[in-house]
């Protein structure tokens, strides 16, 4: 009887979006009289930071600081249609819609500034700090504040834009299954190290090293939030979670957080996250949807590490101490080889 260590690897990809009945999201952008920008959406923030990311996307596209942008979302009286927040689609679909709306608003903004500066709009650029200037001649400039005032009170222009992003519906071919169920794919590879107590069947995940390729980290700190939290959920799925511990028996289902198990703050693996960025051709500033993918590779990596440690395969989730002990018992002291249930 001993503590045995093992290491396992897994690699995965994950599709962005859910193309079932067509996959649309729309956005509206308009300026206030003093040059702040409102983004109107109906997308839902579940905690992943939709509001903040849409503000950064709008700000980048219009050419203003992020704190000049306010996001109003998830009110069906004011926000244009969004399919919803699921299928790793939020940032990608709503982000593309916001870019389209912000581009249109930026164009009007530059046209108004051009009239004030008596130049062509195509010669103008933004400095990202709240000003519009003639490209190559930064001293010929006007603030976005003054541009918005001019649009509202003098020129009668609406600095606004409409954006929409639609992935058209894909009908799977009944015979071959040819279909386009999603757009760009995020990627991951995880290496997990575990320690297994072959007397109790308990697994301690020592380290997880997660490599995630996500297109573009639009806000690296928020990406880190998602990826670290996702990695924790993956470990939790691998070892702890189910509403039916003896599925298909309906008995023993957890009803609260004492009975439904998840790793607590004292059970954390040493977690490393490394991010690669291969921008997606159709992604907003290249972003893919990493929110779901990041919780997947830990599960098989841990299963493979447990095999490496104690030589048994647990092919049913979750990998509980009971299942490990039963497999060890079934295999005696011999190496389990390929198959053990």
């Amino acid at each position: 009887m001993a503590m045995r260590q093992g290491r396992g690897v897994a690699a995965v990809n994950y599709p962005t979006g859910m193309n079932l009945g067509g996959d649309p999201t729309q956005a509206l952008v308009h300026s206030t009289p003093t040059g702040n920008f409102m983004v109107s959406l109906s997308s839902v923030d579940l905690g992943q930071g939709m509001k903040q990311i849409m503000a950064q996307i709008c700000a980048e596209t219009i050419g203003v600081p992020t704190d000049r942008v306010i996001v109003d979302t998830a009110d069906t009286d004011t926000g244009p249609h969004c399919m919803g927040t699921f299928a790793s689609r939020g940032t990608h679909r709503a982000g593309n819609a916001v870019i389209a709306a912000a581009r249109e608003a930026r164009q009007v903004m530059l046209e108004v500034a051009a009239e004030e500066l008596e130049v062509n709009a195509s010669d103008l650029d933004t400095d990202g700090a709240g000003n519009i200037h003639v490209r190559g001649a930064p001293q010929r400039s006007i603030s976005i504040f003054d541009t918005a005032l001019s649009a509202h009170f003098k020129r009668g222009r609406s600095i606004s834009g409409r954006g929409m992003f639609l992935i058209p519906r894909s009908y799977p071919d009944a015979e071959t299954g040819a279909m386009k169920p999603s757009t760009c794919y995020a990627h991951a590879c995880t290496v997990a190290e575990v320690e297994v107590d072959d007397e109790t069947g308990e697994v301690n995940v020592l380290t997880v090293k997660n490599i995630f390729e996500i297109g573009r980290a639009l806000n690296p700190k928020m990406v880190e939030q998602q990826l670290v939290g996702g990695s924790w959920m993956g470990i939790s799925h691998a070892l702890y979670e189910t509403t039916e511990p003896y599925y298909p028996s309906r008995e023993h289902g957890g009803r609260d957080f004492n009975e439904y198990l998840m790793p607590g703050p004292g059970d954390l693996a040493q977690t490393e996250v490394i991010v690669l960025e291969r921008p997606a051709a159709d992604g907003p500033y290249g972003a893919k949807g990493p929110g779901e993918m990041c919780a997947n590779p830990q599960i098989p990596a841990i299963a493979n590490a447990i095999f490496d440690a104690v030589g048994v395969r647990i092919d049913t989730l979750p990998i509980t101490p009971e299942r490990i002990l039963r497999a060890l018992k079934a295999n005696g002291t011999e190496n389990a080889g390929l198959v053990a249930h």
Binding site: G229, W232, P265
Partner: peptide, 20 residues
């Protein structure tokens, strides 16, 4: 000490490390 102090609090998003 921190881990002990928050061990009665569930977080489903963060994985706890940023909170610690």
């Amino acid at each position: 000490d921190v881990v002990e102090a928050i061990s009665g609090n569930i977080c489903r998003c963060t994985g706890y490390e940023p909170i610690i």
